[in-house]
Design a protein around this nucleic acid. Structure first.
Lengths: 235, 235
DNA sequence: TGTCATGTGTCACTAAGTGACATACTGTCG
DNA sequence: CGACAGTATGTCACTTAGTGACACATGACA
């Protein structure tokens, strides 16, 4: 097999993550194209040019190969929330951050984003994949504990904080599923999902054009799910 | 092996469920005693007195053997919510139903309930089991969609309804985890969890004694997670 | 340049899960 | 009462996910 370049005494953490992501990409592509059950570990290994044994060194199971790509679809939101300054309202912060993605492109690739949406959609029917998606949501919830705990001036493991975080994470999940499904339906469900030619519909229309509406939608859902506790600026 | 009595042309659905539950009980016991990884399908089969092949006929995977017992811990809440009359407040309904369990015992066995708590606790460290727990929560969420949709006079798949249902289900989950952990810690983490001798602490104290407080706690969390949309009586 | 640390390939192996076929049980019809 | 039919289970062979052990390649550092 192709012997990949490797760095010295200790693969850098960054390299590890990049490799995991690359494997995940191929796995997700195969999962989407032919289903999870029909995709073998050997196929994934062949697709990424590694030995099967090495795949299992980086992932504990076949399904977990989808995790990084799914997680990628979520890191945007997480880093975005981590940056939320105390003195800013949720709406303002979301709108500002999302608008920023117009000039500087978002940290994750668009094709990865689409792949993540496909995995989330697959998770609807493939129980094996559902785990990956729910794990990602779990991460969001933990992250939210930190963010909300900080804004409320309480420890992150406080019950009240955990309740707000759980409610927030779950509405974000539902919104993600809803919007993701809409976008996928929009660009068609074919395997490639290459950029369509049509005027205006560039496949990311729902994502990039109506930014303020999106921001408002998320913010409103989060406010509702926390009775307004999360959303306002705090001293 | 012991040939179990079986009924005629077509195992009744009830029999199927009882058998699944019995297998689940043994599996959960083993999982708790020695961990999921250390428990083999053969062991589960031996414990319940069936051939290994039959286990796989009733469960698609080893971990899914825990599902029924975990689900049992949740059916109480689901049937309880399904019975919620429109003209009643959440607090009143919860308190009344829970109080009713004092006289007529709840539909699920107490030892099963404890087993479910143990599985939920295990799910914290065993990713394989987490699936079962999250699947159960998923069921609750779907159920909530129906209940809330009905009370709001909207279709169950309405986005607004789904958001409220998701938020509700997630706070119920957190509360369950929190209270379950507390009860488990209370009765000790030993395998048997036999009825302790101590005065007052019968291992179910947290469940049966402070019913009104419990009801208020759940109701308050749900109201908060839905900005008060779910909780009041409706015309 | 030699050595050390670490990632990867190869091979043998365990265990999860399935397919196919034989069999035992049970209710029903004659 | 006895043959029939339907279904759940047992047994066995088989595929495949995932692991352990060992050898090898690679690149940093002395």
């Amino acid at each position: 097999m192709v012997t990949t370049k490797r760095s010295p005494g200790g693969m850098s953490e960054q390299r590890r993550l990049r490799l995991r992501l690359e494997i995940s990409r191929e796995a997700a592509r195969l999962f989407w194209a032919q289903g999870v059950a029909a995709t073998s570990g050997d196929q994934i290994a062949a697709a990424v040019g590694l030995s099967t044994r090495t795949i299992w060194r980086h992932f504990r199971s076949k399904e977990s190969c989808a995790e990084p790509i799914v997680m990628q679809g979520v890191v945007t939101l997480m880093t975005l929330l981590r940056r939320w300054p105390r003195q800013r309202s949720l709406e303002d912060h979301l709108a500002a951050e999302l608008a920023g993605f117009r000039d500087r492109p978002p940290p994750v690739d668009l094709s990865d984003e689409r792949l993540a949406m496909k995995m989330i959609r697959l998770a609807d029917t493939e129980p094996a994949l559902r785990t990956a998606w729910l794990m990602a949501c779990d991460q969001v919830e933990r992250e939210m504990c930190a963010v909300i705990g900080d804004r409320l001036g309480r420890p992150a493991d406080d019950l009240e904080v955990r309740l707000h975080a759980a409610a927030t994470a779950s509405v974000v999940r539902v919104l993600d599923e809803h919007i993701g499904a809409a976008i996928l339906a929009d660009i068609g469900t074919d395997t490639n999902a290459a950029a369509p030619a049509g005027a205006g519909a560039d496949g990311t229309a729902g994502l990039t054009t109506d930014v303020p509406a999106l921001a408002r939608r998320y913010a409103h859902a989060i406010r509702t799910a926390t009775s307004g506790v999360v959303g306002d600026p705090v001293a």
